[in-house]
């Protein structure tokens, strides 16, 4: 028996197939075109859009290709709610990569959002009200303490 390195391994990925682009499979480019359509719409005053990456039949390498082509932007945030949610803007401004992780850090859902800011980062009205009452409570207590 020869060594492990003698076993032929084919690495599937984003490199150009040997027999030319006609056999290229996968959905990375179609998804980028979809993003382009949504981004165009947003620049013309249209609605934000979201793409569910779990709903796409991704070939091996597609995911990496998407990440590579969209790149890293200058904003990233982590939300700690039911496990971490990582939000980052890609190098294509207005295109956000939102990854929801579960309690043990496994990915439970993944979206590409074409928007000014992803919804999950924004504070909802009910939380504004809760925040205000919390602040007022805090002020009342401090006022009480000062007058004692």
């Amino acid at each position: 028996m020869s060594g492990l390195s003698d076993i032929g391994v084919k690495v599937e990925g984003d490199s150009e197939p040997e027999d030319g682009p006609t056999t290229r499979i996968g959905n990375a480019l179609p998804i980028l075109h979809e993003i382009e359509t949504y981004l165009t719409r947003l620049t013309q005053g249209g609605e934000p859009a979201t793409i569910d990456l779990r709903a796409m039949p991704l070939a091996p390498g597609d995911y990496e290709t998407l990440q590579r082509l969209l790149g890293e932007g200058e904003v990233s945030a982590t939300i700690d709610a039911l496990g971490p949610t990582r939000v980052r803007e890609t190098a294509v401004r207005g295109v956000w990569w939102v990854t929801h992780h579960g309690a043990t850090d496994e990915v439970v859902a993944e979206f590409i959002e074409i928007t000014r800011i992803p919804t999950i980062l924004q504070t909802v009205d009910e939380d504004l009200v809760d925040g205000l009452s919390r602040l007022r409570e805090c002020l009342a207590q401090e006022g009480q303490a000062a007058s004692d």
């Binding site: 709903a55 709610a81 039911l82 929801h100 859902a109 939380d127």
Partner: peptide
């Protein structure tokens, strides 16, 4: 569970339900 947590739950559920 915070409201962001709930929104995350709903987004994941929608994804589950296709």
């Amino acid at each position: 569970v915070s409201r962001r947590g709930f929104l995350k739950f709903c987004a994941t559920t929608a994804s589950l339900m296709a």
